[in-house]
């Protein structure tokens, strides 16, 4: 095999990640995940399978979840991206999902957590008042090997409650 053209093709892209604009020169074959992690230093997004099944790499691209292992950085040119680093509010206060995950022991090794948080941010925007089977269904695209999901399900339900009535503390 000789050097494939994809290996050397480069392009300049501009992405806004967690509100901050970055101009980067990337190989066209660079995945969005590797761009975020290794070019922009945002290592909170994790890679668990690199083939689109585990969901660990999930980020929000223009508000919609995307598997950053399956997306090329150049495809994100011009996009607004949110990663786990940008979920908390600007003053550093945790997102209700983050608080609920801590409260309900919804993580162990925490390697799957970033992708689950970003997936659930989108899910709760679409369905602010889910029941347990709906939460489990929404989680079906994220694999967690450690927790058995129970704490995650409870946390998402609790976060949904907190988001619906922001002044109320955990109702668990």
């Amino acid at each position: 095999m000789s050097m494939t053209p994809e290996a050397t093709d480069r392009r300049s892209i501009s992405v806004t990640v967690n509100g901050q604009r970055h101009d980067v020169d990337v190989e066209t074959r660079l995945t969005l995940a590797d761009c975020l992690r290794h070019r922009l230093g945002l290592t909170g997004t994790h890679l668990g399978c690199e083939h689109g099944v585990c969901g660990a790499c999930t980020v929000l691209v223009n508000g919609n979840t995307a598997r950053s292992c399956l997306m090329l950085a150049v495809q994100a040119d011009g996009a607004e991206i949110a990663t786990v680093e940008g979920i908390a509010s600007e003053n550093g206060e945790w997102h209700p999902l983050q608080k609920a995950f801590h409260e309900h022991h919804a993580l162990q090794c925490g390697f799957c957590t970033a992708g689950i948080l970003t997936s659930m941010v989108e899910f709760l925007q679409e369905n602010p008042d889910p029941d347990e089977p709906e939460v489990r269904e929404a989680l079906s695209g994220n694999i967690c090997r450690c927790t058995g999901y129970q704490g995650i399900v409870q946390a998402v339900l609790d976060a949904a409650r907190r988001l619906r009535s922001p002044n109320q503390e955990s109702s668990s």
Binding site: T83, Q98, H102, G110
Partner: peptide
């Protein structure tokens, strides 16, 4: 949890 939930682990 804190580091893992905020992406700083």
């Amino acid at each position: 949890d804190a580091a893992l939930l905020t992406g700083t682990a």
